[in-house]
Each structure stands twice: as C-alpha cells, then as structure tokens.
Computed example of a mutant assay.
Amino acid sequence: MTKIISIATVSGGGKTTLTERLMQALPHSEAIHFDDIDFKHAPEDLTKWVDDGADPHAWDLSPLSDQIEQLIAGDHPPSYLILDYPFSYLHPDISARIDISIYVHTPLDVAMARRIIRDQRGQKRIVEELAHYLSKSRRAYVYMEEQVMPTADLVLDGTEDPALLVSNVLRHLYYGSTLTK
C-alpha cells in the first residue's frame, strides 16, 4: 500500500528540494508536483482568492486526484508518493488520501530571497516582484502560515540543512517522532 506524504510551504520555502531529497531517501517513491498540473477549474487571481477567504473548495482538484489514483492503482504502485501540494488537509478530495502532511516553515524573507535567486531575475524585475509581494502576494504567504501550517502533522524549520529535514521526515515516518515540530 502506498504511503502518501504531502509537503506544503510558501513559494521558495523548500518543497522541491525536500521532495527531491526524499525521493532519493525513500525506496520506490514517486512525486507529483501541484504546479505541473493544469487545473481548468481554479481561481484565476490568487490574490483575490486569498482576499475572498481562500476557500480550498474553489479548486477542482480532480486532475490531481486522477494522477494519484493512476499511480497507486497501477501494476507497480510506489511505496511512497510525495505530493508537492499547498493545501495539507484543507481540501477534502485529497485530505483523505494523505498519510502524513509536512509543512516546511520558512521565514517569508528567506523564501522571497530564494525565489529571486532561483529565478535569477534582472534588477528591474526584482524590484517589480518585491513591489508585487508587498502589495498583493504577501497575503497568500501569510495564509499558508496561518491556515495550512496548523493542519500539518509535522512542521519543519525551512532554514535547516535539507539533509536534517530529510532525517526528521524519515524519523517521523519510521518511528513517529521527530526533533522538530
């Protein structure tokens, strides 16, 4: 039976790094990245969605649910399925499938700096991105900390070395305990 691990954090918080490292550490594992899925029925303006209450039900997650089903119902289902997924247990279509939800708590300034470095934006674009963050998108980041993080089974410090994060996840998976939370 496939154990499903959900990983959430703000953009730049370390989801991809943790997902990649867990895939190396966990035998016979697969990953699904939320951002790689085309959701036809999803809010178009994320800032407005957050301002209107950020109801996860506004998202039709059937494409994600279908991908999960295809992987776990296949001839060789993975032992572990890692979901790079923003809602933790907040969306009922996915929450019943999750065995453990992890939130990587990364300070917002660190996450923003990582995004700028990762995307290697020019100086003008960096200024535009920071202005947009301050005027609009910061509310979505705060939503993640206030609404998603409290639902997680395990909260990790996103400023820690990725090897330590993986170690804490494995400790939680195998023994039900961790040094962080």
Score class of each variant (00 low, 15 high):
residue 128 E to W: 14
residue 47 T to C: 14
residue 152 A to T: 02
residue 146 E to P: 03
residue 9 T to R: 09
residue 39 F to N: 02
residue 157 D to F: 11
residue 29 S to M: 08
residue 40 K to S: 07
residue 96 A to T: 11
residue 43 P to E: 00
residue 152 A to W: 00
residue 64 L to N: 01
residue 110 V to Y: 06
residue 149 M to W: 07
residue 34 F to H: 02
residue 55 D to H: 09
residue 6 S to Q: 09
residue 72 I to N: 07
residue 160 E to S: 14
residue 157 D to Y: 12
residue 143 Y to P: 02
residue 137 S to I: 15
residue 17 T to G: 05
residue 118 R to A: 15
residue 109 D to S: 09
residue 59 W to T: 10
residue 24 Q to H: 07
residue 37 I to N: 01
residue 72 I to V: 14
residue 63 P to A: 06
residue 89 Y to N: 01
residue 54 A to H: 11
residue 129 E to I: 13
residue 152 A to F: 04
residue 116 I to M: 11
residue 95 S to G: 09
residue 73 A to I: 08
residue 9 T to W: 03
residue 22 L to K: 02
residue 131 A to L: 14
residue 71 L to H: 08
residue 86 P to I: 10
residue 133 Y to E: 00
residue 42 A to R: 05
residue 70 Q to I: 08
residue 134 L to S: 09
residue 179 L to C: 14
residue 83 L to P: 01
residue 53 G to Y: 00
residue 5 I to C: 07
residue 81 L to R: 05
residue 102 I to V: 15
residue 124 K to P: 07
residue 118 R to G: 12
residue 107 P to G: 08
residue 69 E to S: 13
residue 142 V to P: 00
residue 11 S to G: 15
residue 106 T to L: 09
residue 65 S to E: 07
residue 38 D to T: 13
residue 19 T to Y: 02
residue 36 D to Y: 07
residue 11 S to H: 05
residue 84 D to M: 06
residue 163 A to P: 07
residue 42 A to W: 00
residue 130 L to W: 14
residue 136 K to P: 06
residue 162 P to E: 03
residue 59 W to G: 08
residue 67 Q to A: 13
residue 117 I to P: 00
residue 49 W to R: 00
residue 75 D to N: 14
residue 181 K to R: 15
residue 179 L to P: 05
residue 12 G to Y: 02
residue 1 M to W: 09
residue 54 A to G: 11
residue 152 A to S: 10
residue 87 F to W: 03
residue 109 D to R: 04
residue 167 S to V: 05
residue 44 E to V: 10
residue 18 L to G: 10
residue 164 L to P: 03
residue 44 E to Q: 10
residue 34 F to W: 00
residue 95 S to V: 06
residue 63 P to F: 02
residue 143 Y to M: 06
residue 101 S to W: 00
residue 171 R to P: 08
residue 60 D to Y: 06
residue 165 L to G: 09
residue 156 L to M: 02
residue 103 Y to M: 04
residue 91 H to T: 01
residue 108 L to I: 14
residue 17 T to A: 13
residue 156 L to S: 09
residue 56 P to T: 03
residue 22 L to H: 03
residue 101 S to Q: 05
residue 33 H to Q: 11
residue 10 V to A: 06
residue 119 D to T: 14
residue 130 L to I: 15
residue 163 A to L: 10
residue 75 D to V: 04
residue 122 G to F: 14
residue 16 T to Q: 01
residue 97 R to M: 12
residue 79 S to I: 01
residue 16 T to A: 13
residue 138 R to V: 14
residue 63 P to G: 12
residue 178 T to S: 15
residue 173 L to D: 11
residue 164 L to F: 15
residue 136 K to N: 13
residue 105 H to W: 04
residue 156 L to Q: 02
residue 181 K to T: 10
residue 77 P to H: 08
residue 21 R to F: 13
residue 100 I to N: 02
residue 123 Q to C: 12
residue 12 G to E: 00
residue 43 P to W: 04
residue 43 P to I: 10
residue 120 Q to G: 12
residue 4 I to R: 01
residue 56 P to L: 01
residue 67 Q to L: 15
residue 5 I to S: 07
residue 84 D to Q: 06
residue 166 V to P: 03
residue 51 D to W: 08
residue 40 K to M: 05
residue 90 L to K: 03
residue 106 T to E: 01
residue 44 E to L: 14
residue 38 D to C: 03
residue 78 P to Y: 04
residue 53 G to V: 06
residue 80 Y to F: 15
residue 112 M to A: 06
residue 46 L to C: 08
residue 24 Q to N: 12
residue 72 I to A: 04
residue 9 T to E: 04
residue 134 L to Q: 09
